[in-house]
Design a protein around this nucleic acid. Sequence first.
DNA 1: ACGGAAG
DNA 2: CGGCCTTCCGT
Length: 609
Amino acid sequence: MNKANTVTNADITAVFDRVADLLEFTEANPFRIRAYRSAARTISSMIESLASLRENSTRTFTDIEGIGTDLSHKIEVLLETGSLPLLEELEASVPPGVFAIMRVPGLGPKKAKILFEKLHIESLESLENACREGRVATIRGFGEKTQQSILDNMAFAKSDQHQRLLWEDADGIMQDVLAYMKQSFAARTVEGAGSWRRGCETVGDLDLVVESDDPTTVMNHFAEWNGTTVVLLRGDTKMSIRGPRETQIDLRVVTHDSFGCALQYFTGSKEHNVLLRSRAREHNLTLNEYGVFDGFQASETSVPEKMSVNVIHAEKGKWIAGRTEEDVYKAIGLPWIPSEMREGRSEITLAEEGRLPRLVQLSDVRGDLHMHTTATDGENTLEEMVQAAIERKLEYIAITDHGQRVTMARGLNAKRLLNQWGEIDRLNDSLSKHGKPAIVVLKGIEVDMLEKGGLDLPDNVLEQADWVVASLHYGQSQPREKITSRILEAISNPHVSVIGHPTGRLINRRQAYDVDMLTVIQSAAKYGTFLEINANPWRLDLNDIHAAAAQKAGVKLVISTDAHSTQGLRQMRHGILQARRASLASQDIANTRSLSELRTIMKKRTRIQ
DNA sequence: ACGGAAG
DNA sequence: CGGCCTTCCGT
Ligand SMILES: Nc1nc2c(ncn2[C@H]2C[C@H](O)[C@@H](COP(=O)(O)OP(=O)(O)OP(=O)(O)O)O2)c(=O)[nH]1
Ligand SMILES: [Mg+2]
Ligand SMILES: [Mg+2]
């Protein structure tokens, strides 16, 4: 990020988020911090780059929600110079080690600052020493217990177990803990919530809600789970443990009448909750995890013991709703909002206007259009993949092994590819020998968009394909213009059906390559090229933001597993979650069509047989 | 009772 | 010019 024209939205987002982190430490008023956080959030959800917006535009940065003259000016500076004086000053004044210190559970910005000012602690090591020597306990606001808890949490703070889990891994743990909690006789209903329920790409911790009249028994049961390593905290209504893979699991126990509200609350997101609660307030209602109440409640009813719904119900008659999520949203004048959409972006407005889409679901999927076999880097043969697809009740699949550029996978040259297509022809023939075939197998290929432009197989081969996925595996660190033009070239190729995993990112492992997604989407719309939502839990691109933008531009999405084994076909559900987070309906997805319908919406010059 | 951290 | 409402812990 040193040249002006290389400053991306992601860079600006990172700078603003970093400024917010630093401000948190240096005192700073919460509103200012919030302003930076919210600006970062907004910018990260825009697909048009601020750089190009500045060039073209009648619009200015101040038109962007949450950005006023000050932040607008800072964006200008960032775009011009690639750096921000404020950031440099803050970095200079905040010791780098404090962020490690704030990762110790129980230590936030205030306490970290005190430790720094009173004991000059700016690293985990010096913090550990100070605790050992008993110096921490002498500070006002700290004591023996705090000191001991810091020591207890030292190993965790030092470890690198802070990474968020892939949704798939979180789901494994979630299924275990849900099944276990359901065994408790005191638990009437058990549901997973939080980012897991919203289908986020990654999950920081697991959250669950239990309906019960007997929280003590439920919490004892939770403590006795064999996945529980430590009980982190435990009160009357909530409890947290550390579970498998050092993952924190938060449990909230509520009564029957509060269950809907509690599930809504614990599902979040935080931003969605804040908007929903503000909206309740505008209607002269109060929303919390116990119910929807008439009037403003918070201040007067903060006697904790009285927070049971029964009491409020009886003595005030103010309780309006809370048993189911649907009741809760209805009480606030809204239809129920699917959990995947609850990110505090535009879902509340959509709901208000009755414009919520009917989201795509797994059972809508009729075909899978990206997968590999043993011909390249797959683990199963063509026949095995087809058999597995039949068992999954798919109506059609495309076999899309790698083209020859991917030497590591023994990518196919024209000869081997035509050979495979011959096999597919024979397979289709034998499948349709006794009438309507159980499945149709499309002759496909995953071609590579080469470093120098062009594809790794010639048009006279591709024109014989039923389905062509074009992906970019090499030269991923080229500059934005290069990458973008390679992709644009493929989009305009009449034989290319879809762009595979269009950003190349691997979650928690590898950044997306730098690409002008707005232009890619506009071009895909123009040429009728589809864009993929890759269902591999490491990829999941296009992501929710990009996929939503593509849909708005009129691009059809294809959700594909990119399976490298028969088991890989099961990953479709992850792609569906991502599509739902993008607010997509079945009609936005090409592979929810029957094969004949799919043919009618494909771009003209790709022949499909 | 309060501040801080957290959900 | 300032977004919501709550629980738990330690002092
Ligand atoms: N009203 C309100 N609800 C909150 C707040 N913070 C968290 N929540 C709710 C919404 C969250 O989705 C839910 C669970 O909190 P988590 O910290 O576990 O966040 P979440 O699961 O969304 O993301 P994660 O992947 O765990 O980081 O609690 C808050 O400040 N106000
Ligand atoms: Mg969570
Ligand atoms: Mg949580």
